[in-house]
């Protein structure tokens, strides 16, 4: 058995195919930008999560530090339980504030973490107690209308 030119072409073909998968992973996909090899899980309860989905980003100061992994409904407290994995490189204080924010006017929703001043840091499985729900457009409009109506009544 000896090497032939056929082998060369097939070898080139296989290399090109694997390179294409690599390009798709690195340049097109997100494998290079966000690699969560080491991570820990945090929980947070929200009154309303709006349009948050699992796999939505978790950001702090605009930097993606983790992803939402699961969203469940707690039948005892009637609140939404959001689990998220955070990259091990980033540590947050115990009194970190979790908010649901929107990227742009109609963009996707994400969890924003505002670090507090506590000395102790959150560890895997901890619960973020201080949360702020998503802004629901209908509630915003209705409260605006009510306040306008109240103003009108006051003027009369």
């Amino acid at each position: 058995m000896e090497r032939t030119t056929l082998d060369l072409w097939v070898g080139l073909f296989v290399v090109a195919g694997l390179a294409a998968i690599l390009v798709l992973a690195m340049k097109v996909g997100n494998l290079s930008t966000f690699n969560m090899s080491e991570s820990y899980t945090l929980q947070a309860d929200f009154d309303n999560i709006g349009g948050l989905k699992s796999r939505s980003p978790v950001k702090s100061a605009g930097v993606v530090v983790g992803r939402v992994t699961a969203i469940t409904f707690d039948n005892k407290t009637f609140r939404a339980q959001v689990s998220m994995v955070i990259d091990k490189r980033y540590q947050f204080p115990k009194d970190t504030f979790a908010k649901i924010l929107t990227a742009g006017l109609l963009g996707e929703q994400y969890v924003g973490l505002d670090p507090g001043g506590d000395e102790q840091v959150l560890k895997g499985g901890d619960q973020i107690t201080k949360t702020q729900s998503a802004v629901v457009l209908e509630n915003l409009i209705s409260s605006f209308l009510y306040s306008k109506a109240a103003e009108g009544d006051a003027k009369k």
């Binding site: 296989v14 195919g17 294409a20 998968i21 798709l24 340049k27 097109v28």
Partner: peptide
């Protein structure tokens, strides 16, 4: 061959 060809198709399409 098939997955390699499909990956090349997608990569060159992008």
């Amino acid at each position: 061959s098939m997955p390699l060809l499909a990956a090349m198709f997608s990569a060159i399409g992008v």
